[in-house]
Simulated assay, not measured.
Amino acid sequence: MIDEMHQALLKTAAESPDQLIARPVGLNTRAAKALFAKLRKTALAVEVVVIEDEPHWHSDERGPIGLRLTTAGRESLGFGPDVGGSVASMPVADAGPDSAGTKPRSGTKQALIIAMLRRDEGATVGDLMAAIGWLAHSTRAALTGLRKRGMILTKGCDAEGRTVYRLTDDTTTEAR
């Protein structure tokens, strides 16, 4: 349940052109983390990569990370549908792999991983490691990140008995 303070944050975001939810001033790191997680879980906000001068909650390897109000968030406050946010911010988490705006920027390692996993033959961890230059643990972490974003990975074996991962869009699809 969202309390009055949270609702005020969402209302401020709904009234701003970029639809970004600003981290409250003076909020300590632990409280900010908890609030960030709570807002993300409500489906009223989505995690996005923002540019340096936009409101953000924390930074990671992707850059500054902010929260953008979703259409559901706007409607819960009595506002109309989203009028379009900042072009500079790229969503990084959403309900599914083909939801509007969740595709990674072209030319990134994440885009390469997704393309390889969508091939009919899928990809092994070794294939992914060779293509992106990461170690096995980082490559597996990227696969976990895709699962956390709601993408469906199936696991199977190829003719040589190696574990092959495939990215599917349908929850009813079984491992090949």
Score class of each variant (00 low, 15 high):
residue 2 I to D: 01
residue 2 I to R: 02
residue 10 L to F: 08
residue 10 L to D: 00
residue 14 A to S: 02
residue 14 A to W: 05
residue 15 E to N: 12
residue 15 E to T: 15
residue 16 S to T: 05
residue 18 D to P: 06
residue 21 I to P: 01
residue 21 I to K: 00
residue 22 A to G: 10
residue 24 P to C: 11
residue 24 P to R: 02
residue 24 P to Q: 00
residue 24 P to D: 04
residue 25 V to K: 15
residue 25 V to Y: 13
residue 26 G to E: 07
residue 30 R to Y: 11
residue 30 R to V: 13
residue 30 R to P: 07
residue 32 A to V: 02
residue 33 K to G: 09
residue 35 L to Q: 04
residue 35 L to N: 03
residue 36 F to I: 05
residue 37 A to P: 06
residue 38 K to C: 11
residue 39 L to I: 04
residue 41 K to G: 08
residue 42 T to S: 07
residue 42 T to P: 02
residue 42 T to K: 07
residue 43 A to Y: 08
residue 44 L to E: 02
residue 45 A to N: 00
residue 45 A to E: 00
residue 45 A to W: 03
residue 50 V to A: 01
residue 50 V to L: 01
residue 50 V to R: 01
residue 51 I to R: 11
residue 52 E to D: 13
residue 58 H to E: 15
residue 59 S to P: 13
residue 63 G to Q: 09
residue 63 G to E: 05
residue 66 G to C: 11
residue 69 L to S: 00
residue 69 L to G: 00
residue 70 T to A: 00
residue 72 A to E: 14
residue 72 A to M: 13
residue 73 G to E: 03
residue 75 E to K: 09
residue 76 S to H: 14
residue 76 S to W: 11
residue 81 P to A: 08
residue 81 P to L: 06
residue 82 D to E: 14
residue 85 G to S: 00
residue 88 A to E: 07
residue 90 M to K: 09
residue 90 M to I: 12
residue 91 P to V: 01
residue 91 P to T: 04
residue 93 A to V: 15
residue 94 D to Y: 14
residue 95 A to F: 13
residue 96 G to H: 12
residue 96 G to A: 12
residue 97 P to N: 10
residue 99 S to G: 10
residue 99 S to V: 15
residue 99 S to P: 15
residue 100 A to M: 14
residue 100 A to Y: 14
residue 102 T to R: 09
residue 104 P to C: 07
residue 106 S to V: 13
residue 107 G to L: 09
residue 107 G to T: 12
residue 109 K to N: 07
residue 109 K to E: 13
residue 110 Q to S: 14
residue 110 Q to Y: 11
residue 111 A to N: 08
residue 114 I to C: 04
residue 115 A to N: 08
residue 116 M to K: 09
residue 118 R to Y: 10
residue 118 R to I: 11
residue 119 R to Y: 11
residue 119 R to N: 14
residue 124 T to D: 04
residue 124 T to L: 04
residue 126 G to M: 15
residue 126 G to T: 06
residue 126 G to I: 05
residue 128 L to D: 02
residue 129 M to Q: 05
residue 130 A to T: 06
residue 130 A to M: 05
residue 132 I to Q: 01
residue 133 G to A: 03
residue 138 S to G: 15
residue 140 R to D: 03
residue 140 R to Y: 05
residue 141 A to T: 15
residue 142 A to D: 03
residue 143 L to H: 10
residue 144 T to I: 12
residue 145 G to D: 06
residue 146 L to D: 03
residue 147 R to I: 07
residue 150 G to C: 05
residue 150 G to M: 03
residue 150 G to K: 03
residue 153 L to I: 08
residue 155 K to V: 11
residue 160 E to G: 08
residue 160 E to W: 13
residue 162 R to W: 04
residue 164 V to E: 01
residue 168 T to W: 07
residue 170 D to A: 06
residue 172 T to I: 09
residue 172 T to H: 10
residue 173 T to G: 11
residue 175 A to G: 06
residue 175 A to S: 15
residue 176 R to W: 08
